[in-house]
Design a protein around this nucleic acid. Structure first.
Lengths: 99, 99, 99, 99
DNA sequence: CCGTAATTAACAAAAC
DNA sequence: GTTTTGTTAATTACGG
């Protein structure tokens, strides 16, 4: 085939197109690495923020939950709530001991 | 209370400091949300890259593995490989198990 | 020292103890494989149950949730609820738009 | 309709069939719980094995990889390896990146 | 059949 | 040090 990293099959690797494929692959890999690096930095920043918040007396768990709740679209939240209530009813109105 | 989102406990809520704490909390939450958003975008970009690479005939799994390998200390990689092969040989080749 | 699959280091592999280590390693591997196999079978059984339940008109999502809730100790459930409520209050009594 | 935990809808639960559905639901839930419990125990056993292997000087990561490799079709493994090496060579060895 | 969504397992990190 | 927790990757199931 013409490309390394290709799942397909035949591997007789024509040098020319192989070289071109290698370039493209290198391109992809390099770009991915760069993006992942930025991503990791942001992750570190987030962690630092949680740390600082904690140092100021806030509970990181709760902040996390706030972020999560605000990040969910209202429909999801509603659906989740609905599921919970349905479940409760299915359990016989809380009867089987939940909560 | 003195701060919402605070694990401590006592919740008798002096309005003034509560207000200040609320502001700081809002600050943290907003900043975290912003960073997470950027992070998510980068994640999407990475996914897109894998997709495009796949469309060009590259195997995403292989690319993933290459990215990982390049991110590791070559010595570690080599050591790991060596140990793995040694171990498999000690077990009588990998073919100790059917299928 | 003398064992393959050992992270430690020095690999001069005296045949004898190496052989013994190989046996022990083989033992571990075989046992793990056996347990994992049983485990996979059970997983399949569970999946089948969900399927059959679904065929009888029950919603697998809800069954999952029931199983999850019953599997949590009541304290956890309570703690979770409390966290949720605290979070709501921290958001200003649901004010920031949640739910 | 007649079944709780049913995705459909109307839940006015005629006592008789509702009771029957409840029984069946209970049956499913109980059975699932039992299977999951066994499954969890096996999982614990596996973890213990890894622990004991580690205590005897084996690297759990290596063992894990061996177990995985032995569980795969040898042809697939070989093909994957070959493709990976080919690709890395095309990228000019793995050493294209520092650190 | 492909793309997506959800569940599960592995890994890494952090708290106690 | 260990034990949990959070994150990430991979497998699996489902709908178009």
């Amino acid at each position: 085939m013409t490309q390394m990293a290709q799942s397909s099959a035949r591997i007789h690797t024509p040098a020319k197109t192989g070289g071109i494929a290698a370039e493209r692959l290198e391109h992809f890999v390099a770009q991915i690495e760069r993006l992942e690096e930025e991503r990791a930095e942001l992750g570190q920043d987030v962690r630092d923020l949680y740390l600082e918040a904690e140092n100021q007396g806030f509970d990181p768990k709760i902040i996390r939950q706030i972020v999560k709740l605000r990040g969910m679209d209202p429909c999801e939240v509603e659906a989740h709530e609905a599921l919970l209530h349905l479940t409760m009813q299915a359990l016989g109105g809380c009867g089987n001991r939940v909560q």
